[in-house]
Each structure stands twice: as structure tokens, then as C-alpha cells.
């Protein structure tokens, strides 16, 4: 009896949490299929009322929009480059922190943590001025740099924890087998830390993809403006009546890559990959 009651309670809990988390998402999807008029007139139902449905029109409108297409390309490009660079640097830095004894190691780690805790907004003003002086205002690199500096600390912390877990002997065995330090790192250590590398990559990508503050303050044109910022510029004919359904469609389009990414990487993040490396 107790067992069944426990299971029922678990099921109720699961449903509640799913409902809580997914309702806003579901509502945005619902909104994106309603026509502009229906939203303006008030359309409280989850499913579009008769004649209030817009089909795929909102989506085609969004994707036909020149600015939004640029924003998608910007977002994908900037996020991918920032992620790749951040992961590469973090991997090398984390390896050094995990394996080498050097002066100032603690300092590096603490500084990294402090940077991660720094309020993003407080940096926007100075960066705006600096980037204009350097001539990288409203460019990809102008966004990639702040994204990297805010994601590197977390990536370094995550990865150095993973590297510490890998037994020293792995590398020593590789070196005895004839590998250079670089080969041992690339062929043995990095594959073993793969779950950590992917975790760091996903975290970095999320930060870059979801950022709004830098995106809106450090760009002025569609040259570098990412999706979150572009969405805020989505103004219809009437500035006091924003095209909610179009925005909803835009939001769904912006969410899809993240969902795909998570589903793809989820299979890569296999814990316990190191099991069996040593007896135990």
C-alpha cells in the first residue's frame, strides 16, 4: 500500500513540476499560432478561437524579416565562436591548474570566480566607450570578448574538477608508450574529460545565446545584433501595440537551437566514462 501511495505522490509531483515549467513555453507556442487581430481583441483560450488562428503565417513573417534573419546568423555565429574559444582556453587553463604547481594558482582561481560574480550591467558603460575607441563597437568580436570573459571562469572551474579526477598514471602511461605531453593531453586526457568539455561548452553557449544586456548595448545595427536584442526591436505598425504573436514566433525560433543542442549533447554527457580506468 505504502509503495503505491508513494508512486502516486511522485507522479503528482512530476506532473506539477512539468506543468509549472512548461506552461509558459506552451503558451508562447500557442500565442505564436494566433493571428495578430485575435491577440489584440483578446483571445484567452489555449487554442486559437475560430478564425483567430494564423497557421504558420507568423513564422513565415518572422523568417522573411531581413533583420531577424541577420540576427539569427549573428547569434549562431557569435555564440559558436565564443563557445569554441572559451572551451579551448578553458581546457588548457584548467589542465594547467589541475596538473601543475605554480605560484598564483589560487589567485587565478579566485580571480576567475570574482569575475564570474561581477554584475554584467556595471561593465556595459565602460565597454561601450572602450569598444567605440577600439573600433569594435557593433561587431562580432565586440560581443565575443565579453561573452568569453564571463563564461571562462565557470568553464575553468568545471573542467579543472574533471581533470583532477583523471589519474596521473593515465598520462604517465601515455608518455612511457611514446607520447609527447601534447599527444598525451589530446589522445588521453581530453577524451576522458569529454563530459566536462561538453558541459562547459553548453554552459558557455547558453550564456552567449541568452545574453541581452551586451547584445543591446554593444550593437547598433543588424551587423552584430543577436536575437534577444533583435526581438526587442520588433515593433509593428503601431508602437503602442506590439505584435505579440510575431514576437512569440520569434521567441520559439530562438529557442529551437537550444533545445536541439541540449538533446544532442545530452547523449555525449555520459557520466562514468572514467569507470574502469583503474581498479576500484
Amino acid at each position: 500500500m505504502k509503495d503505491i501511495r508513494g508512486r502516486i505522490l511522485t507522479a503528482i509531483g512530476v506532473v506539477f513540476i512539468l506543468f509549472w515549467c512548461l506552461l509558459p513555453v506552451a503558451w508562447i507556442i500557442s500565442l505564436s499560432f494566433k493571428s495578430q487581430e485575435a491577440v489584440t481583441n483578446g483571445s484567452p483560450g489555449f487554442f486559437p478561437s475560430d478564425g483567430g488562428g494564423a497557421g504558420w503565417k507568423n513564422y513565415t513573417d518572422v523568417l522573411d524579416d531581413e533583420q531577424f534573419r541577420h540576427a539569427i546568423i549573428n547569434s549562431i555565429g557569435i555564440s559558436l565562436i565564443a563557445t569554441a574559444l572559451s572551451v579551448i582556453f578553458a581546457t588548457l587553463a584548467a589542465y594547467a591548474i589541475a596538473r601543475l604547481e605554480f605560484k598564483g594558482k589560487k589567485f587565478v582561481l579566485t580571480t576567475a570566480l570574482v569575475i564570474a560574480m561581477f554584475p554584467v550591467v556595471s561593465l556595459v558603460g565602460p565597454l561601450f566607450d572602450m569598444w567605440r575607441t577600439f573600433g569594435i563597437y557593433d561587431s562580432w568580436i565586440g560581443l565575443i570578448i565579453p561573452y568569453m570573459s564571463f563564461t571562462l571562469p565557470l568553464a575553468i572551474w568545471t573542467l579543472s574538477a574533471f581533470f583532477r579526477e583523471i589519474p596521473w598514471e593515465m598520462e604517465q602511461a601515455a608518455q612511457v608508450d611514446g607520447a609527447t605531453s601534447w599527444q598525451a593531453f589530446r589522445k588521453v586526457i581530453v577524451p576522458l574529460a569529454a563530459p566536462g568539455v561538453f558541459t562547459a561548452a553548453i554552459l558557455t553557449f547558453f550564456f552567449a545565446w541568452n545574453d541581452f544586456v551586451f547584445g543591446i548595448s554593444l550593437t547598433s545595427t543588424e551587423r552584430a545584433r543577436p536575437i534577444p536584442a533583435a526581438l526587442s526591436f520588433f515593433v509593428g505598425a503601431d508602437p503602442f501595440n506590439r505584435p505579440a504573436s510575431l514576437l512569440a514566433a520569434g521567441a520559439v525560433v530562438a529557442t529551437v537551437p537550444i533545445v536541439v543542442l541540449v538533446l544532442f549533447f545530452q547523449r555525449k554527457i555520459v557520466a562514468g566514462l572514467t569507470a574502469g580506468a583503474v581498479k576500484g
Binding site: 593515465m170 569529454a194 580506468a277 583503474v278
Partner: peptide
């Protein structure tokens, strides 16, 4: 000489096999 240049082979206490 670095280990790789000594051309010796070694069996470690915990085997140090590459799990991947």
C-alpha cells in the same frame, strides 16, 4: 631523455588502461 625517448615499457600498479 623524456620517457618516450627511452623506449621502455611499463606496467603500472593500477594498470592505467585508457578507459575510452
Amino acid at each position: 631523455l623524456a620517457p618516450r625517448d627511452r623506449n621502455l615499457s611499463m606496467v603500472f600498479q593500477n594498470y592505467a588502461l585508457y578507459p575510452h
